[in-house]
């Protein structure tokens, strides 16, 4: 897996990025916003996959990292009037620091306890947003004002509310995270993460400090999710508590399970597919959560490897 066909893997990923770039010229206007949103949320899913897929740690609280990025960036603009790059950095930093704290605590537990602990910490985060409604806007949320969502480079400026700029910004973030993920899982560090997933005890006996390695993975995962949240706030101009609710901890799990855990492109495919399903079914039913519920059960019952995981197992063993 790791030594074979690196060129093929990189070619595939660059091809996917090129395809997404080309789609911005081929697709009708309506899909630009949707696809930009999907790419940003796919970054969220990739961050989740880093921990769930490669380290085997099932968190039920990743909404707090997405939320930390969302509110970190959003409030930096709304309350402090900071510019876009600074706000993005604040969001990213909030997520990374939060992930470090949560990791230090939650990694003392394993398995089911880890799932419940992460869920509870995320619930605390969510309730804090409601409690400090004066600043956060509570469950009403807040709009990030349009004039503030502009990137200034001296004379030129990029308006993030412009659909094309927004699409390209989302694509840039997505591509960066995708390539970083690919490089990470192919690296020595990626090999150690998979070893921890497969047998932590054995990995320790090869001289690895598994706690530190897991902690780094939690921080990287949290930072990626926060980047997604920060980008969401800045590109789509809304911060709301629902993005930190337990539902947004379940969704990345669903996307990753659907696309294929421990595959680099699975998160994108899962997110895309789920949005497509919702788009199709929204004509028949408003029961969006029903679809999420049924999909979760069907996936764990019949399709635990997800789309790309199954393809890799059956046909394309080299898929990263």
């Amino acid at each position: 897996m790791s030594e074979a066909s690196p060129a093929k893997a990189y070619a595939l990923h660059l091809g996917v990025i090129a395809l997404l770039f080309a789609l911005s010229f081929l697709l009708p206007e309506y899909y630009h916003g949707l696809l930009a949103r999907i790419m940003v949320l796919a970054v969220f899913a990739m961050g989740y996959n880093m921990l769930f897929g490669y380290v085997g740690l099932l968190s039920l609280g990743h909404a707090m990292f997405f939320g930390a990025g969302l509110y970190g960036a959003g409030l930096a603009v709304i309350q402090l009037g900071w510019n876009v790059p600074a706000a993005f950095a604040v969001g990213l930093g909030c997520g990374a620091v939060l992930a470090l704290i949560i990791g230090l605590l939650a990694l003392r537990t394993t398995g089911v306890a880890f799932m419940i602990v992460t869920m509870m910490f995320a619930q605390v985060f969510y309730l804090l947003i409601l409690y400090f409604a004066v600043w956060t806007g509570g469950d009403q949320g807040q709009v990030v004002p349009q004039p503030a969502r502009v990137l200034n480079f001296g004379a030129t400026s990029l308006d993030l509310t412009n659909p094309t700029v927004r699409y390209m910004s989302a694509l840039a973030l997505f591509s960066l995270v995708l390539l970083v993920t690919l490089a990470t899982v192919r690296s020595r560090y990626g090999r150690v993460l998979v070893a921890i997933r497969e047998n932590e005890e054995r990995t320790k006996m090869l001289g690895y400090d598994t706690f530190s390695n897991k902690l780094i993975a939690v921080v990287v995962s949290g930072a990626i999710c926060a980047a997604s949240g920060a980008a969401y706030a800045l590109l789509f101009g809304y911060v709301g508590s629902s993005f930190a609710s337990v539902q947004y901890s379940i969704l990345p799990l669903l996307w990753v399970l659907l696309g294929g855990a421990a595959t680099t492109l699975g998160p994108l495919i899962g997110t895309l597919f789920m949005y497509y399903v919702i788009d199709v079914t929204s004509g028949y039913t408003s029961a969006y959560l029903l679809i999420v519920g049924v999909a979760l059960i069907l996936l764990v019952l019949f399709f635990p490897k997800g789309i790309l995981g199954t393809i890799r197992q059956r046909w394309l063993g080299w898929l990263p």
């Binding site: 897996m1 790791s2 020595r188 090999r191 150690v192 070893a195 497969e198 090869l206 001289g207 690895y208």
Partner: peptide, 20 residues
């Protein structure tokens, strides 16, 4: 025996090698 069953023999040995 507790080798990493889902990894290649190469990766199994690469884990101790890369650390040293």
């Amino acid at each position: 025996t507790s080798v990493f069953a889902n990894l290649s023999a190469y990766d199994n040995v690469a884990l101790p090698v890369q650390r040293t």
